[in-house]
């Protein structure tokens, strides 16, 4: 399949391409857009772009990496159409400091292990909900950097932001996520 040109893709090959990649593409788009219906639209647009641009795919990256980028671009384009990437308030989830600039952080007597949280379906769902609770502008940066594994520079390019702005948003998103999943991290019952 990877050596085929677009025109040589038979209907069967095209269907195979769609069926073998649509699952993970939908998962990414849904994470970014926060809604299944929007994700389906984005994935449809991504496949159309992929079919149209298949000629340019020269095996310099893997097919999955190539489709990954196309999916992210399609999802971001949809996101931009919905609303501009203007900042939204995230303040209530951010770390607090006293007048002496010392951190106000309740003492940690226990920190739950990653394995325990990830192994538990309900906890995992709580993590997903917490990520979706983040304001969109922050959620996108966290997803692209921490989950999809893009560099700060790449995220800056995708979102047309400066690298320092990406870092600020990333830090706030992580700090807010920490606050949101703190009961899990402390092994408390929600």
């Amino acid at each position: 399949m990877q050596n085929s040109s677009p025109n040589s893709l038979t209907d069967k090959q095209a269907e195979e391409l769609v069926r073998s990649n649509i699952g993970w593409m939908l998962a990414i788009a849904e994470r970014l857009l926060g809604e299944r219906a929007l994700a389906e639209d984005a994935v449809q647009e991504a496949f159309i772009s992929a079919f149209q641009g298949f000629e340019k795919f020269e095996n310099r990256s893997t097919l999955k990496t190539w489709l990954h980028r196309i999916t992210i671009n399609a999802a971001l384009m949809k996101l931009r159409k919905l609303k501009s990437l203007a900042e939204q308030p995230i303040d209530e989830y951010l770390p607090e400091f006293d007048k002496s600039e010392c951190r106000l952080e309740a003492e940690w007597t226990h920190l739950a292990s990653t394995d325990n949280i990830v192994a538990n379906e309900e906890s995992q769902a709580r993590v997903h909900t917490a990520i979706n609770t983040l304001p969109k502008d922050y959620r996108i940066v966290l997803l692209l950097r921490d989950i999809e594994g893009y560099s700060t520079g790449e995220v800056a390019q995708y979102l047309k932001l400066s690298e320092s702005n990406v870092k600020v948003r990333l830090h706030r998103a992580r700090a807010a996520l920490k606050k949101l999943i703190e009961p899990l991290l402390r092994d408390e019952v929600f």
């Binding site: 952080e105 990653t114 990830v118």
Partner: peptide
């Protein structure tokens, strides 16, 4: 406080990565 905060912050990154990759 910052030491514990940083541990929890790093754990959060780890958990979000693992939770999303397993999904």
């Amino acid at each position: 406080e910052c030491r514990q905060y940083l541990d929890a912050y790093q754990r959060t990154i780890e958990i979000s990565r693992r939770a999303c990759s397993s999904s």
